[in-house]
Design a protein around this nucleic acid. Structure first.
Lengths: 232, 232
DNA sequence: CATCGATGATAAGTATTTGTTTCATCTGGT
DNA sequence: ACCAGATGAAACAAATACTTATCATCGATG
């Protein structure tokens, strides 16, 4: 489970965020003041830092700069800045500060989760970087984000790739459409949409898996889809 | 059995939902007003709260906020909001309110059940995920929805799977056709229909259980069917 | 800000499952 | 052994779910 540290003096927001992130398999911790926050970084070694700009003692810009300056202590800790308004954004993400992304307040929680996932993926520390065992002629190299089918490189879109990864991590598991939606987008699925079907269809097509007796993705009628792990 | 609390001033709907959820092994209780509802939460300690937006006294948003604010009292009670229309949905599920999901009215009962399962799965265990003891060469992995007969994977349809699950949960129990009908679909069992017979026949066929001395499903003449639990 | 690719929505077409009918067969009681 | 009701299973019909082509929309890119 990913550890997220939040430095924000708004206790209420911290509480809410902690609850919200828990739904997405992230454990959040809150530091109300920068000094406390820096301490906690050393102890917790969080996977990501959410940093408010408006803070007591010194502002978020300062904190960010400091963390980046002392990378020997804090490492390459990914940072997501919360800005009061959509201002001075260029400098935040820019070199000067070294934050990885920013989000203007007020924000949609979904947006936050999406950006967290984004950052974690970029920083190579995401779940999607786990090794994936080759199955049935498909090899995946997560570090290169490269997929090979019978030794030929496949060109997959982001969603297709994520879907394939998910399937391959749980071979023979039957996913419902909700589950797939939730795992791929981190929100509750709109059940009246055929988006998942379309996605599966596209992936199948690229995998050349269009016959009635699928080689990879089996339809479990009335339930969802299953990635076939072994030949029988 | 899961306890579900419904806060909704539509007495009729509450009644219907109570009946409907009963089929899915959930016991529903209805509170017509928020004040009453909050009381009942403390007493019942329900596993999930279904909360209508349109309510007397104060609206569902208020109630939701209150429950989240007083988490020391109400705990992490999962909340499913019923919205009048498909609007302002982001904020509902979002941080501000802390609901776990929402469902626009009018909704399909099946949809509701699906979402309840979703939420319960996220927040812990799901009734439909309970373990099933292997019997007589049949193993079931509910989390993967995988059935193995003598170590070979079986391909079952939804109904067949549900029927098998039901049988295996109560080995040696004789089910009448009505009982099976009620458990598998709804109260409105057509007693003239032979759907159950057909279903049993199909399941037997897939289990290779077609001989006169059945290995799994025994016909209790004039009564119903029994799933055989042990070798005699 | 125009373009392109990726993704979501829609709907027509297809496939599978599930329910019903039917008839051969079976059961238990006479 | 015979009968009436009950059951099994095949064939057909109806309901339901899935596939995919196509179009719309969104977001990134330059």
């Amino acid at each position: 489970m990913k550890q997220i540290l939040i430095i924000d003096d708004d206790e209420n927001l911290g509480e809410l965020l902690t609850q919200y992130l828990a739904r997405y398999e992230m454990q959040a911790h809150v530091a109300l003041a920068p000094s406390k926050g820096l301490e906690m970084i050393k102890k917790l070694k969080p996977d990501l830092l959410i940093l408010d700009v408006m803070l007591p003692e010194k502002d978020g810009f300062e904190v960010c700069r400091e963390i980046r300056a002392k990378s020997s202590i804090y490492g390459q800790l990914p940072i997501l800045m919360l800005t009061a308004h959509a201002e001075v954004t260029d400098r935040i993400v820019g070199l000067e500060l070294g934050a990885d992304d920013y989000l203007p307040k007020p924000f949609e929680p979904r947006e936050l989760v999406a950006r967290i996932h984004n950052i974690l993926r970029r920083s190579g520390d995401d779940a999607s970087m786990r090794e994936i065992k080759p199955i049935n002629g498909i090899e995946v190299d997560p570090s290169r984000r490269e997929v090979k089918l019978d030794h030929a490189v496949l060109d997959l879109t982001t969603m297709e790739y994520e879907l394939l990864i998910l399937f391959m991590q749980y071979p023979n598991k039957t996913f419902t459409r909700d589950e797939l939606m939730n795992r791929l987008r981190g929100i509750d699925a709109e059940l009246f949409s055929r988006a998942v079907d379309t996605l599966v269809s596209r992936l199948r097509h690229k995998l050349g898996d269009t016959s009635k007796t699928p080689r990879f993705i089996k339809t479990v009628w009335g339930r969802g889809y299953t990635f076939i792990g072994e030949q029988l």
